[in-house]
Simulated assay, not measured.
Amino acid sequence: MLPQLTVQVLHGDTAGPNVLFKDSEIAAIVDFRPPAPGYLAWEIARLGCDPKSVLDNSAESWLTGYTDLTLAYRDANPKASVDDLVSSPRVGCAATLCSAFPLSVPVERPHILDAAMEAYGRVRHEAALMLLDRLPVMEEALRDALR
């Protein structure tokens, strides 16, 4: 279940490869598609629930990083609702579970299926299961941090 979520104009593809850093500061956000309306919770989840980020750390350190990301977002956007921020991992989990990519690749373009694509599919699946399992803990931690 999700509360009524805020829709706003988003970058729409704020993923790790599209955020460029210089030292520890964001230097640029790149992508060549125009911004479009979307859920605020999705923009946060797109960065914080990236499968590689979820699995590269222990669940506890990932949750700390996700909480820090959410708090930084709220600091930069003080009008963001707590419901949107707390719901962001649920939105990220749902998007990961519902997306057909990369499972659609063998059907649409079997010639590009390789070991790396298969590994990515397995990582996405594992990350989605971890997110699904940890949602209550994550939402509680975010609610506590946002008070």
Rank of each mutant, 00 (worst) to 15 (best):
V7S: 07
V9I: 15
H11Y: 01
G12L: 06
G12H: 02
A15H: 10
L20P: 05
L20Y: 07
F21R: 01
D23M: 03
A27V: 05
A27E: 11
I29V: 15
F32E: 12
R33Q: 15
P34W: 11
P35H: 08
A36L: 13
Y39N: 08
L40P: 01
W42S: 14
L47F: 15
L47N: 06
G48T: 03
G48N: 05
D50P: 09
V54W: 07
L55Y: 05
L55A: 10
D56C: 11
N57P: 00
W62C: 10
W62L: 08
W62K: 04
L63D: 09
T64A: 15
T64P: 02
T67A: 08
T67P: 04
D68Q: 14
D68N: 09
T70H: 01
A72R: 11
R74P: 02
D75H: 12
A76P: 02
N77A: 04
P78R: 02
K79L: 02
A80R: 00
A80I: 01
S81E: 02
S81D: 02
V82Q: 07
D83A: 06
D84P: 02
L85T: 01
V86Y: 02
S87H: 04
R90W: 06
R90D: 06
V91I: 13
A94N: 10
T96Q: 13
L97H: 06
C98I: 08
S99P: 06
S99V: 08
S99W: 08
P102A: 09
S104I: 13
V105G: 04
E108W: 05
R109V: 11
I112S: 03
L113Q: 03
L113I: 12
L113M: 14
D114P: 07
A115L: 07
A115D: 13
A115V: 09
A116I: 07
E118F: 07
E118I: 15
A119W: 03
A119P: 00
R122H: 12
V123Q: 14
V123C: 08
H125M: 12
